[in-house]
Design a protein around this nucleic acid. Structure first.
Lengths: 216, 216, 216, 216
DNA sequence: AATGAATGAGCCTTCATTCAT
DNA sequence: GATGAATGAAGGCTCATTCAT
């Protein structure tokens, strides 16, 4: 995920592109800067990728793939509790978004792609996101009574993912909203635990007394 | 929020800027296009705002203010149930993000600001977001037992807001993930109801049996 | 036709463009060089003409117009002999192509346009060339017996114009074919006289014994 | 003249180059396109010809040589009439320029060389054009009385060649000047006949009454 | 002998900004 | 106060050429 001397020129360009695209956006990034950081020739982008746009798509997909591989879901066996699976899923999700080196630019790059969806988005969903989403749905199915509709499971899944991604998307707001100490206390451990507790509580209660209806 | 003949040139430019900045981003937007849509002279931006950057900040803040005014929180009296307040808060929040004219470009503009925080972000938090956040915290305080820590209330607030914003930030992914019919079924009404149910369930259960501990 | 301080920037660019396009062709000419010779900014071409292509068309038409105005046909009255008119036409034609300042680049520019026809060609024919061609046809009509067909008049006109243009189009060959002294002897006067004599002789003989048929 | 499987790589490149140079000019042609059409490697041009410029010279000369060989002058014996020789010469000349496959690109390539003379031009004149010109001069000498000066013979030769080349060089103008039907009627046969008739008529009359003097 | 990966110079065009009016 | 003509910096991309194989 970081540039080393062993990477090929093409790989170095992809990584450099991901970092700079994340920092400055597509239009704010110059091919010249990418090539300079990658230690490549100015013509290398067109040579390897055709044009800037295709390099961008490549960089986005590459970044996401790397991040997923860096923090894989643990291997579960038949005995693993569904509650554990959910906790694992959430912890992995939060970790992918917020921990370790590469977190910042990977996250920013994804945000920019969300703010300005390109061909990369569809490809991302098909190859990476949908399978993960199906895993989460399966976990929720195990945790819910049988009569819960697929629609509800989906909304629940969205509620869980939404809580995780919030710390990703709203980061600039959170930074301004909290004091430095408060902000720093939002570590991966605490966030995962809270989101798991909160979601499990909701799932259990809703499963017991399905559709009580909101006070309205 | 839309350009009328009664607006001043400066106002027309701010609105036009918001729309185009939302659509194409800061670097993808040209001063020429803004002025053309606003029916103003090419030099008007520099004349009224100094430069493109300051116009952007103005446009972001303006857009957010307008949106907040367009969908205000209802007036509550002393008898309003806390549950109702939470439902109202969530419904208003979702509506601001997803309904009616101006929703798209206002939301997109905010996303871009999140992906690329500028001076506008800090100003936004201070003037608009923090007060709303305090209101939510107060509602949650009413709904929780007294011993619940502020940290937990904050995390709960984030969980609620995160669920709402998810449909905003992850929209491109949702579109690719769901079928057209499924996507269309995610209307404001259904989303608000689900988020309220889900969150209230979690709050009540956690309040009763605090820190059940995640299975891990 | 030459750049003076009194010309506007746009005019200076058009003239400079004509000269350099003539010398190096469309693809061999850079906008930078044009602007530099015209003493204009690099962005001036796009500002005044939209793009390089449209500047080229403008330059070609402008050059041709200038050249025509510089060497107009003499004013004929009702008493002017048709033979005189033909001599005048030919002399003017040759002069436009070969005499005085501007001859070289104007001619070269036209040749390039012929070798690589663009929108300029059609415009040129409609606005300048066709009227001249009609004048020549009228002269030939006066010189021929009535039964000569329009087709034949046209071919005769082409024969005359072809002789004139030869010294224009085949100039590089002529230079290599003749000695320096022989080449210099091909002045406007001698060429006009020869072409007039040659063509008048042909017209008269063909008119007397129409379609004798070539020995074949 | 067309690319076959038996041609060597070098030959295929020369032919492909001639075609593309003719179509787009020297600067408008890329070495890549040439090599692609020739089915050769991108480095082949530099390998076989040194650089693009020398390939161009080769292509021009090659094209002209091929065209001459494709339409050779007929073999004349001692009894052949001079008038017949002139008719043959003109017919061959027109045919080289306007008929059959390869006519278009060969002609266009020559025009470009005339508009932008390179080393190819001098070589062409020495090896191909001058001998043909001498043949024409000899025919004209046979057709004229002895006292006609060489200068006059040369001008007459130019008049004849000029008429032939006109349909080549001024083609874009002719297309715009005439209707489609009129343009199509200008076939090789009709043009040759007209030019022969016109020129023979002029030569005979001028030979009988030398220097009648133009009315001026 | 022939290849093709890689390069660096340079081109057209666009854009935010300014300044004289 | 407001305009729009004009500018210079810089960006994406193309191309002939080279060099290691």
């Amino acid at each position: 995920m970081s540039i080393t001397e062993h990477d090929t020129t093409k790989e170095r360009i992809t990584t450099a592109a991901g970092e700079i695209f994340a920092e400055r956006g597509f239009d704010g990034t110059t091919v010249r800067d990418i090539c300079q950081r990658a230690g490549a020739n100015i013509a290398a982008v067109n040579y390897y990728f055709g044009d800037k746009q295709r390099l961008y798509v490549e960089a986005v997909c590459q970044a996401h793939r790397w991040r997923m591989e860096q923090f894989p879901l643990p291997a579960w066996d038949g005995n693993t509790l569904s509650e554990t699976k959910l906790a694992d899923f959430i912890a992995t999700f939060v970790r992918r978004v917020r921990s370790g080196p590469g977190a910042t630019w990977h996250s920013k790059l994804m945000m920019r792609e969300m703010a300005n969806p390109t061909a990369a988005c569809a490809e991302l969903v098909q190859s990476s996101i949908r399978p993960q989403f199906e895993i989460l749905l399966q976990i929720l199915r195990e945790l819910s009574s049988e009569e819960v509709a697929l629609d509800t499971l989906r909304l629940t899944a969205f509620s869980i993912v939404g809580q995780c991604l919030f710390y990703h998307f709203a980061d600039p707001v959170i930074r301004n909203l909290l004091s430095d100490d408060e902000y720093k206390s939002l570590d991966v451990e605490q966030l995962s635990t809270h989101i798991t507790d909160f979601s499990l509580a909701a799932i259990r209660r809703l499963s017991r007394a399905p559709r009580a209806g909101a006070a309205r």
